Every structure is written in structure tokens, then in C-alpha cells.
Amino acid sequence: IQGDPPQRLAAYLVEGLAARIASSGRGLYKALKCKEPPTSDRLSAMQILFEVCPCFKFGFMAANYAIAEAFKDEERVHIIDFDINQGSQYITLIQTLASRPSKPPRLRITGVDDPESVQRSVGGLRIIGMRLEKLAEELEVPFEFRAIAAKTADVTPSMLDCQPGEAIIVNFAFQLHHMPDESVSTVNQRDQLLRMVKGLGPKLVTVVEQDVNANTAPFFPRFVEVYNYYSAVFESLDATLPRESADRMNVERQCLARDIVNIVACEGTERIERYEAAGKVEARMTMAGFLSSPFSAHVNETIR
């Protein structure tokens, strides 16, 4: 697909509408899933998206600064991540810890290796963990990585192996919207997960999500929300990657198109991409027992 950002987005929206009419959205969504292996010498389409698109990069950056600030005066830190993706967020975090004049805390990261994740077919989180361990060793940051082979909804506190004396930090980066909520099932896995995390007694929970109502909104308002949000994403790609770039085409086709098609074409349990507006996410967190914590002046100044 070629053209300027509005033309490229329109093409994928049309693809979603066609799939909706043909009731083939779920199959097309699966076919478009990112399959690139997380290797050190060739970034996957997903990692490229996270690194070049400001919409995503800013979210990871803000979460990292908040996490790093929570490390202060802690000797042992345990980060639990339910969707670690390519692990690039923690590459930056480990580098930040190593650059500090003070001795870094002992860092333990637990990642959930969901069988439906894009990493499982190419070695799961084992490869990502090895890459992080190698980096931490080179930078002399005490580090341990472990992966839990389970669906997110099946994770229990005992599986996370939280230990006395360690500060627990839970990171939800573009993950919560994949959990079915009360609009999909009475089980409401989204709120169940938040309540389980609250029971761990974390020092900090970071949430990075798209501020879009693509969950409970009827079809037409949802379509408009998707158009407005992805217009900004496609415009930002136009400023960072050439239109003829193979990387850009790969990012659009394998990462953005699949989400657009799923939101536009699918309903019920087949709609996996269920973004929520910030106010709704905040309400869920409050109902689960969390208190909102604004960024400190230092973090605000750093990310500007």
C-alpha cells in the first residue's frame, strides 16, 4: 500500500470494512499478526514501531522514568510484566540504572510468556531474557529474569514468586486492552487481573494504553475513534520513516493493519483490541483499590 498517511489509513479501514461484511475479520486478524523473531541484529516490525513512533515511544519512556524513580532507596526490585513484547523497554531501563552514580538495586523481572504471544513461536521469552541478562552483565547490574509459561488470565500470585523484602512493580504496557471485560463476559478478566495485582501489594503499577474508546462504543463512533487515533499514528510514521521504506510497510501491515481490522471487522469475543478512554481505565484502577499517582516534577521535566 502506497500514498500519504490518510490514503494508507483509508486502505486499511476499507480492508476492515470488507472483512466485516464478509465476516472474515478474525481470520484476517490472525493472518496479519506480527511473526518477526526478536533477534539482536534485525528488529522486528513491532520493535521498530515502538522505537520510531512517538505515540508508543513516549509511553514507554514515561513508564520507565516512573519505575526508575520508584527504585530509589530500594535494594531489591521485582518488576512483573504481563506483556513484555520485545523487551526494549527494559534495555533502556537497565542502561538508566547503570548510568547512575549510586549502586543499582538487584533487579528481577518476571515476564508472562502467553502461548498466543508473538514471541512463543520463535522461542518465547527465553531469547528476550538472555538478551537482557547479557546486557545487565555487561553493565554490571545485578539481574535475574524468569518467564512464566501461562495465559495472562491463568496467572496466580504463587506463580509470580514474590519474595519478602523486594519492592514489587507491575508494568501494564499496551496489555490491559487485550483482556476481556464485563462487556464481553461476566467473568471480566480485566478487573480480575487488576484485583489480583492489587493483592500483591505493589509499590507502583504503571499503565500505558491508547486513550481511545474502542471497547464499548457502537460501531460508527468506534470507527470514528479509530480513524482519529490512527491518523495521528500514521502521520507520526510519515515523519520518521520514508513512505517507500520496507520497514514502514512491514510495520503498517503486520502491526497497525491487524489492529485496525480487528477493531473494525470484529465483534464479541473475536474483537481482541479493546482500547478504553483514560477516564474508564482510571475508574477500573480505582475500583480495584489503586490510588492515582501523578508524575513527580523530576519525571515531568525529564520527559518534556
Rank of each mutant, 00 (worst) to 15 (best):
S117E: 01
P101C: 08
A11G: 01
V170I: 07
S231G: 07
F223K: 00
I94R: 10
P242T: 00
V187H: 02
D41L: 11
S231L: 11
S292H: 14
G59R: 13
G279P: 07
T96Y: 02
C55N: 12
Q7K: 02
L93R: 00
T269R: 13
I303S: 06
R106E: 08
S236A: 15
K198T: 06
F295M: 09
A45E: 12
V281E: 09
Y12M: 01
L237N: 00
N171F: 08
T110I: 04
V52G: 08
R195S: 13
V299R: 06
F219C: 03
K198H: 15
F143I: 04
G201L: 15
K57T: 11
V197L: 06
D154G: 11
P180N: 02
V208D: 09
E74T: 12
C255M: 12
D41T: 12
I84S: 03
L107Y: 06
G165M: 11
L200F: 05
D247A: 15
M179P: 05
A98K: 06
R20L: 07
P115V: 06
C266Y: 02
I94E: 10
E36Q: 02
V205R: 05
I79R: 05
R120K: 12
P6M: 13
E276Y: 07
V251A: 07
Y90K: 01
V205T: 10
K151R: 11
G199Y: 09
I168H: 10
F174W: 05
N300V: 07
Y230A: 07
E116R: 09
G123Q: 04
L43A: 11
Q192R: 14
I94A: 11
A283P: 02
V226W: 04
Q254T: 13
A136W: 04
A19K: 03
A246Y: 04
V122P: 00
E75M: 05
T39R: 05
M130Q: 15
F50A: 11
G87E: 12
L176R: 13
A283Q: 14
N262E: 07
R20Q: 06
V197T: 14
E235L: 14
I80Y: 01
A277L: 13
P294E: 04
A18N: 09
V122F: 01
N85Q: 12
A277I: 14
A232D: 06
L237S: 00
G3T: 01
T92V: 08
V251R: 03
M179E: 13
E69F: 15
P105W: 13
D247Q: 14
C162M: 05
C34T: 08
M46D: 10
V207E: 09
Q175L: 13
D73L: 15
V197M: 10
C55M: 12
A66D: 10
E74R: 13
P38T: 14
Y227S: 09
V299C: 07
